[in-house]
C-alpha cells in the first residue's frame, strides 16, 4: 500500500495553487486533509501525477460569521468547526453532523471543504450543505465563482468543480433564531459512513410549519433534497401522522443502492425512519426555543 510516484507541489498562495492546477489540469489533485485522497493513493486506486498540497497556503483557515451566513475557509479542519462556538450558535446542524464524520483523528486532519469537494455519496457535510442551501466559493484560472449546493454535486465523488478550480470557502446559511434542526444517521459502527443519514431544518409560525428542509445522504449518488416531503410539510400543523407521511414521501423519492452492509430496501426504509425521528427532534427544538 504505497502510492505510485507523483510530483509534489506545496504552493503558498491560492494563486500559485490555481496556476499549478491550470498547468496540470485533471492530472493534478488537491491535497487538503488527505483523509480520503491518501488512502486512495496508497491503494493505488487513484494515481494523480501531481499533488498540489494546499496546507501551506496562508489565510484559508477561518470561521467567520457574516450576516445570515457562516463562512468557513478551505483549510478549516472539521474538528475546529465542530468545536467552534460560532458554528454551535449559528449552524448547530453542521456541528451535530460533524460529530459523526469519521473519528476524532480523522476530523483533526480532514477539512470541511475537502469533504465537500470529495463528494462521497454517504458523507455528512454534503447533505448539510444541501439542506441549508449553502454555497462554495471556487477559484480558478477564470477567477472566482460561487456555486450553489444544488449545482455542486454531480454524482459519486464528482462535483461541478473544474479540475483547475479549488474551493476557497464554504458558506453555510445560519439558522434564524427559533429554528429547529436535527441530524440523524445510521452507521454500522461509530464513525462509519452512514447507511443513511438525514439533516432536517424546521420552522413554525402560527402553529403550522413555515419551512421544512430535508436532505439525505447515503441513499443515492449525491445528497438528496426531499422536496416532495418538504412541500407536504409546509403549511401543515406538526403531528406524528404528518411525520409518517413525510417519511413515506422520502421513501418514494429516494433510490438507494444496496451493498454488503445493507440492502437498498433497508436504506429506503431507514431513510424514512430517520426523517420521522429527525422531524420529531427538530420540533422539540423549535418548542424549546419558543
Amino acid at each position: 500500500m504505497k502510492p505510485a510516484a507523483f510530483e509534489y507541489f506545496a504552493p503558498r498562495t491560492v494563486e500559485q495553487a490555481v496556476d499549478l492546477l491550470a498547468q496540470h489540469g485533471d492530472q493534478a489533485k488537491v491535497l487538503a486533509g488527505g483523509q480520503s485522497l491518501v488512502p486512495l493513493m496508497n491503494m493505488r486506486l487513484a494515481r494523480p501525477a501531481v499533488i498540489v498540497d494546499i496546507n501551506r497556503v496562508d489565510g484559508l483557515e477561518y470561521i467567520v460569521a457574516a450576516p445570515a451566513v457562516l463562512r468557513i475557509g478551505a483549510l478549516t479542519r472539521q474538528r475546529a468547526a465542530e468545536r467552534s462556538r460560532l458554528v454551535a450558535e449559528r449552524c448547530p446542524l453542521l456541528r451535530d453532523a460533524l460529530r459523526l464524520v469519521g473519528h476524532v483523528q480523522i476530523r483533526n486532519r480532514g477539512t470541511v471543504a475537502g469533504s465537500i469537494a470529495h463528494a462521497d455519496p454517504a458523507a455528512e457535510l454534503t447533505a448539510v450543505l444541501t439542506a441549508l442551501d449553502g454555497e462554495v466559493v471556487a477559484r480558478g484560472p477564470g477567477g472566482t465563482r460561487v456555486i450553489a449546493a444544488s449545482d455542486l454535486f454531480v454524482t459519486y465523488l464528482t462535483t461541478s468543480l473544474d479540475p483547475r478550480e479549488i474551493i476557497t470557502e464554504v458558506r453555510f446559511p445560519a439558522l434564524p433564531p427559533g429554528t429547529g434542526w436535527s441530524w440523524m444517521e445510521i452507521a454500522r459502527r461509530h464513525g462509519d459512513f452512514a447507511l443513511a443519514g438525514v439533516g432536517v431544518v424546521l420552522a413554525l409560525g402560527g402553529g403550522v410549519i413555515t419551512e421544512a428542509r430535508i436532505a439525505l445522504t447515503g441513499v443515492g449518488p449525491t445528497p438528496v433534497r426531499a422536496t416532495s416531503a418538504e412541500r407536504l410539510l409546509t403549511g401543515r400543523a406538526p403531528s406524528e401522522g404528518l411525520w409518517a407521511d413525510a417519511a413515506e414521501a422520502v421513501r418514494a423519492a429516494v433510490d438507494p443502492d444496496g451493498d454488503i452492509h445493507a440492502s437498498a430496501e433497508y436504506r429506503r426504509h431507514v431513510a424514512g425512519v430517520l426523517v420521522q425521528r429527525a422531524l420529531c427532534e427538530a420540533l422539540t427544538r423549535v418548542r424549546e426555543a419558543a
Binding site: M43, R189, H190, F193, I260
Partner: peptide
C-alpha cells in the same frame, strides 16, 4: 472478496 479494508470489514471498536 468484497471487504478487504477496515471500511468494509467491520471490527467492533471500543465505541461498540
Amino acid at each position: 472478496p468484497l471487504s478487504t479494508t477496515f471500511m468494509d470489514y467491520l471490527l467492533p471498536t471500543a465505541a461498540e
